[in-house]
């Protein structure tokens, strides 16, 4: 076989592996459709559910891709979302303005992200451990906010206030706009290229004059916008907020990003759309588990196996003779 043929074959193989998360999504979609037909499920309604259930994670996780591209990690995004949503709701109750609520949600989330990143940058702290500390602080802040609000164990926005925007089209618009913004920044602006460089080789990046700290701050700020939008969408979907609001979002973001084919070490192979693919895939997987009515424990085991299988397929092309770290 000639060299050209071999090269084409290898390229096709590499492309197939790169497509694995998308193929995983398509596969899960197909399984879901088949099950839905067999079990006579309301398919259009299910599609609406999938959007409702995945949009918050899609938005928050897409912003988080900027952090992960740098090879960093943020485990406090769920707690940040909760705090942003609580303060946003309190702002609405004071002003009666949905716009103010949106601005406060985004502002608080960006503020929290900046505190994490500035702390880490100024004091040379490992980003991940800083976010662990932030997770504890934010969890405590949630209880303080709920207590300070004086309305029992919840903070509520009147359902009527958000009824008009609690629809799939609004959420899709927000999601698509933010995705477009992130894709533009990541794939068409210098910021994205710099971040990939920084994540791939921090030493070379520094030697070429890139300021890693500024990039980290920018990444966290963009992630903060996503978290703020996620907080706003959470309020529109469920305007009663408690200490457990968004409690699973933190881990859902990590799972979605990985499930969508994003390399955990960041770098040049990072993909901005991996969060969207991963979040929708996880939602489809949850729908499938629910339809199959598996026991909670067994269902979780099945989810774990599917997760590792899909990630293995999407990342199995990149192997060396040393174990990955």
């Amino acid at each position: 076989m000639g060299n050209d043929t071999l090269i084409r074959k290898e390229n096709r193989k590499a492309a197939l592996f790169r497509l694995a998360p998308v193929m995983g999504l398509v596969f899960l979609f197909a399984v879901f459709l088949i099950l839905a037909i067999i079990k006579d499920i309301n398919i259009p309604y299910s599609f609406k559910n999938i959007i409702n259930q995945s949009v918050v994670v899609v938005v928050a996780a897409t912003g988080a891709v900027f952090i992960y591209t740098l090879g960093s990690f943020d485990i406090s995004l769920g707690a940040s979302l909760c705090v942003s949503a609580l303060i946003g709701a309190m702002a609405y109750n004071v002003t009666g303005s949905v716009l103010v609520m949106l601005l406060v949600c985004v502002g608080v989330a960006v503020g929290i992200s900046l505190v994490s990143s500035v702390l880490a940058s100024v004091f040379n702290l490992p980003v991940f451990v800083t976010t662990i500390a932030m997770l504890s602080l934010l969890s405590a802040l949630v209880l303080v906010l709920i207590g300070a609000n004086g309305t029992g164990d919840v903070i509520q926005v009147p359902a009527a206030a958000v009824r008009g925007i609690n629809n799939v089209w609004f959420k899709l618009i927000v999601m698509v706009l933010y995705l477009a913004f992130c894709i533009f920044l990541f794939d068409f602006m210098k910021l994205g290229r710099k971040e990939k460089f920084q994540g791939g080789n921090p030493v070379c990046a520094k030697l070429t004059g890139l300021n890693g700290k500024k990039l980290a701050i920018a990444a966290f700020a963009i992630a903060g916008i996503g978290v703020g939008l996620g907080a706003f969408l959470t309020i529109t979907y469920a305007p009663t907020l408690s200490r457990n609001t968004a409690s699973s979002v933190g881990m859902d973001i990590i799972i979605s990003i990985v499930f969508g084919g994003m390399p955990v070490s960041g770098g040049a192979r990072s993909k901005i759309y991996s969060a969207a693919i991963g979040a929708v895939s996880m939602t489809l997987l949850n729908q499938i588990m629910l339809t199959l009515s598996l026991d909670s424990g067994v269902g979780q085991m099945v989810k774990a196996m599917i997760f590792i299988l899909v990630v293995y397929i999407s990342m199995s092309n990149h192997k060396g003779n040393i174990l990955p770290r």
Partner: peptide, 13 residues
């Protein structure tokens, strides 16, 4: 992450 999910599920089951 996958192992944690699996072991939790197994303990539950």
């Amino acid at each position: 992450l996958a192992i944690a999910l699996f072991y939790e599920g197994l303990a539950f089951a």
